[in-house]
Amino acid sequence: MTTAPTAAGSTGRRPRGAARRSRAGTAFVAGYLVLLIAFGVLPTGYAVYFAFTSAGGTFTGFDNFVTAARDFRFLDSVGHVAVYLVCWLVSLVVFVVGLALLLHRLAADGTGKALRFLYYVPGALAGAAGVLVWLFMLDPTVSPVRPLLAALGFDTFGEVVAPGNLPVLFTVIAFWTGAGGWIVVMYGALNNIPRDVMEAARIDGAGAWQTARRVQIPMLRKWIVYMVILAFAGGAQLFVEPQLLSLASVGVAGRDYSLSQLTYDFAFQLNDVNSAAAISVELLVVSVSAAALFVARSGFFDAD
């Protein structure tokens, strides 16, 4: 290790080097800082301003939040989103980490490359395109998995999209488009674990399971935390899936299902940008609190 001599030998020069480095650090982030303020902080601040003012711009305290919460659809959609979030986060973490580990361990060279590509393919169909494809997949009249749907006892589209099934269906769709990208990220991170660490684990007699649990997963920690934070926020904003489903089922299923749909309804149907902003601010507060919890518990911001 080379750290010890530098720390001991150059104490006199240290402040100057640190100052130089600090200036360089500022220079490196300057361009990003401009974009962050212009297209991140400013619009976010604007939205928060909307949430606490009336359409005329006068300060109204929590009135918008009360209006939104009193809406008869509000509590239902909170419940829907909560159930969906549990399904989505659990399946994402378990399967993404599991698949990345399996791929890394088993599939050598060509096969692994091909599988990573196949897993990623639906990622290109993010958003509306992917949901459209799934509307066909879930419709027993045209679906290629008709036998599977029949075996599960579903004969019509209406039965498939029964309210009780929706959290699972939305999870399947979101996983289908979203998991591949994360598998690529995790696989890359696994590749970056130094070979001697893996070798040491093997010499110590650790099997596949032990190595994964005691060496690989701890080293993936930051990536997993990051994925969970973003997946939580993304999941809380669930929108395209229920929106298109309600379009396809003519309002039978998925209508006013999620909080984001309610936001959309307030902003574009009722012309109430302020209540819409209030719901968004609530979503933001929940996501940030969850993120803060994860960050605090994992040392995510430590520079080492």
Binding site: R21, L36, V41, A47, Q237, L284, S287, V288
Partner: peptide, 28 residues
Amino acid sequence: TEFRGRRALLVSTLVVMLMPNATLVVPL
């Protein structure tokens, strides 16, 4: 590197990332 405001930058980046996208479109 360590520089003044590093942590503030990390936090604000994360917060902005968690902001519901659809909401940012109108202010933008």
